Amino acid sequence: MSQHVRGVVARAKGDPVRVETIVVPDPGPGEAVVKVQACGVCHTDLHYREGGINDDFPFLLGHEAAGVVEQVGPGVTDVQPGDFVVLNWRAVCGHCRACRRGRPQYCFDTHNARQKMTLTDGTELTPALGIGAFAEKTLVAAGQCTKVDPAASPAAAGLLGCGVMAGFGAAVNTGGVGRGDSIAVIGCGGVGMAGIAGAKVAGASKIIAVDVDERKLKWAERFGATDTVDSSKTDAVEAVRSLTGGFGADVVIEAVGRPETYRQAFYARDLAGTVVLVGVPTPRMKLELPLLDVFGRGGALKSSWYGDCLPSRDFPMLVDLYLQGRLDLDAFVSETITLDEVEDAFARMHKGDVLRSVVIL
């Protein structure tokens, strides 16, 4: 039978979110119902509320989540009731041209649950990133459930579902940061901090944090930054070059998503270095670079979508690093809140007062 639970819904563009009763159906073939234990408040959820993703209101928000599988539908074998899982928004298909080439992290046909969760009047909900985890329970495709070590804190593990994986993967998977490399991270929000943490785990020798907020630069040191640059007071490109012997960093991560910071990243890298764009731009933004500079500087200009991750491979590994004390996921959790406090958490996030607020259920 379907279940009635509480969930955070965005009804219309810009309207404050509110907690409403959500109807969660029994899982169908290839689906699972997950009892949510924790869910991070991500900028993407705010983008949904503001109509920045699409206009498919009403939205059931929340996607950075961990919880326990409660029910599975027919044909599900990879997870079973009682499994502790982190939810992901890229359930790979196994059949597209990327999957057939052995590159499932680039799957071109990822999927979500086929059934819809609804309001009590039957109005269908659009779950954020196909998850909708600001709710006591949610319905997802079973492939969106990645089983991890249950010894991990749900509040910490859930953050792997989006921001931490995006930043960590941008450094390690997309940027290929390795031992002895230098890296600069422009933009020290949650994703940028995860890039810094990833670079530390990978053995980078020089990790430069760049931001305009002194508080974030202080936080960056906790995650592994060896140097900080306040780009509101100094030229970021010149500062990064100065800190790398005049050459520029081997890898520069742009975690803001703006043309001006991308240009900084482009010119702050060494010859044959790599730029990784993980910050999300808006549709109207344009980038202009001298084509001769693109040619003459060589190297690689990459975009990182979800940290080029394969959840089944990367989530358990990062949880193991966390349990070994090598990746401080707890440091990303600025505060824990309830479902009723999500709207206030959006305001704190928008002001830059927190890295992550985490809803505990």
Rank of each mutant, 00 (worst) to 15 (best):
W305G: 00
A345N: 02
V256G: 11
V237G: 03
G28T: 07
S205D: 13
T261S: 03
A38K: 09
D330P: 01
E31A: 08
T228I: 15
D293A: 11
A236H: 02
D149V: 01
G352P: 04
A142V: 13
D55P: 03
T226G: 07
L159W: 09
R241L: 00
A272D: 14
E238A: 15
C107A: 07
I253N: 01
A225P: 04
H43F: 11
T120E: 15
V36F: 10
T138N: 09
F84C: 02
L277H: 02
P150W: 06
V276D: 05
E260K: 13
F84Q: 04
H47R: 11
L291R: 07
P29I: 09
M165W: 00
V17G: 05
P259C: 05
E31M: 10
W219V: 14
Q3K: 13
V275N: 08
C107M: 03
E20F: 10
C145M: 07
E64G: 03
G248P: 01
H63C: 09
V359I: 12
V86W: 08
E124S: 12
I131V: 15
A155I: 01
G75M: 13
V212R: 14
E238D: 15
D56I: 01
S232R: 10
T226W: 09
D235A: 08
G190D: 07
T282P: 00
G187V: 11
V185G: 03
P283L: 10
I183V: 12
V69C: 06
G30A: 09
R90C: 07
A10E: 06
G257E: 06
D211F: 12
A194P: 03
V24W: 06
P154D: 03
A225D: 07
Y306R: 07
V358W: 06
T120P: 10
L361V: 11
R103K: 15
K233R: 15
A135L: 10
S334V: 12
